[in-house]
């Protein structure tokens, strides 16, 4: 994959992410903020983006969504479970729901 292709892919991912997030937020803000792992202030910023802004953001050359599993325990539960699949998922879901939301820096 050359650099141009990679940049193109990143743009695509960003675009789908932003559009999906906006759609989810417009349907139900509270539930969307849980699914996306965002706090209300970030959610409001995302929701209010205009199509032109979305395109500009998507083109910024950086991936806009961040990896949520910065906790190795959760990652381990989801990727390397040996026993019951549903239990491993339940355990991970409890830990995920207990994590703090992504905030805007003050």
């Amino acid at each position: 994959m050359n650099i141009d292709e990679m940049m193109g892919e990143i743009r695509e991912v960003n675009l789908s992410y932003l559009m999906l997030a906006q759609q989810m937020l417009r349907e139900d803000k509270a539930m969307a903020s849980f699914r996306l792992g965002l706090s209300m202030d970030v959610a409001e910023v995302l929701e209010s983006l205009s199509p032109a802004q979305i395109i500009k953001l998507a083109r910024s050359g950086m991936l806009l969504s961040r990896f949520r599993f910065d906790d190795s325990t959760i990652l381990d539960m989801l990727a390397n479970y040996t026993k019951d699949r549903s239990l491993a998922h339940s355990h991970a879901a409890i830990l995920m729901a207990g994590q703090p939301a992504e905030q805007l820096a003050a």
Binding site: A30, F34, S90, A97
Partner: peptide
């Protein structure tokens, strides 16, 4: 297990939503 999951979701919504 299930009630812990539920209460974690509920708290998230109250706090952030």
């Amino acid at each position: 297990v299930h009630s812990s999951l539920f209460i974690n979701i509920y708290r998230y919504l109250i706090k952030n939503g």
